[in-house]
């Protein structure tokens, strides 16, 4: 089991209601159903992923979250998850608002653009960073709004968002002392647990 999923799992209450935005093939929700007996709801626009959710028995709704979550009630979910998708949305700040409206607590994960290898790549090569987890060219990347851990912290400050917990992990989704010492320099992926 992936270490980042393990961290997410540790922040979710058994039997609670979980909304996973951009739930992919339903891996996380299927796992949480099995271990924590959560009541799940996934949101997805990719047809193949939706099919994979149905095959897993994961409830999934075909919906584009870039258009907001107007069909979801305030506080209707215990946890809203957004994993590795924030940077691909048209207005990440607005989806964060929507997540905090619909969920009592939210979990966000995103690649930290200020990871030292990215900085090094840009500084020495003078070109947009590429790495195993950001493999795209600048012109075909789905990632519209890359951000750093420092950027997201600033957004939380501006919006008065409470950061309940924050973890950084590497490509293998493990954490280390170095990363905890200077997350914005050594952290590859950030995992936030937030509430209003």
């Amino acid at each position: 089991m992936r270490a980042d999923l393990k961290i997410i799992e540790s922040w979710i209450e058994p039997g609670s209601r979980v909304l996973d935005l951009g739930c992919g093939d339903g891996l996380l929700l299927a796992h949480l159903k099995e271990t924590l007996h959560i009541r799940e709801c996934g949101l997805e626009i990719d047809q193949e992923h939706i099919q994979q959710c149905l095959e897993k028995g994961v409830s999934v709704i075909e919906q584009d979250m870039d258009k907001g979550l107007p069909n979801f009630q305030d506080n209707s979910f215990d946890t809203v998850v957004l994993a590795q998708t924030l940077q691909a949305l048209h207005r990440p700040d607005l989806i964060v608002d929507e997540m905090l409206r619909v969920g009592k607590r939210c979990i966000l994960t995103f690649p930290n653009f200020a990871y030292w290898r990215h900085r090094f790549y840009l500084m020495t090569g003078g070109r947009m960073p590429k790495s195993p987890h950001i493999p795209y060219e600048w012109y075909d990347t789905p990632n519209l709004h890359h951000c750093t851990i420092a950027d997201f912290d600033e957004l939380c400050r501006q919006k008065n968002i409470t950061v309940l917990d924050r973890t950084v992990v590497d490509d293998a989704r493990r954490t280390s002392m170095l990363m905890n010492l200077n997350p914005n320099f050594f952290g590859v992926n950030a995992i936030y647990h937030i509430s209003r």
Binding site: R39, C41, L54, I61, S76
Partner: peptide
């Protein structure tokens, strides 16, 4: 969703 029922939706 409002009634908190499990639902899948495909268009």
């Amino acid at each position: 969703l409002k009634a908190e029922k499990p639902v899948s939706y495909l268009e």
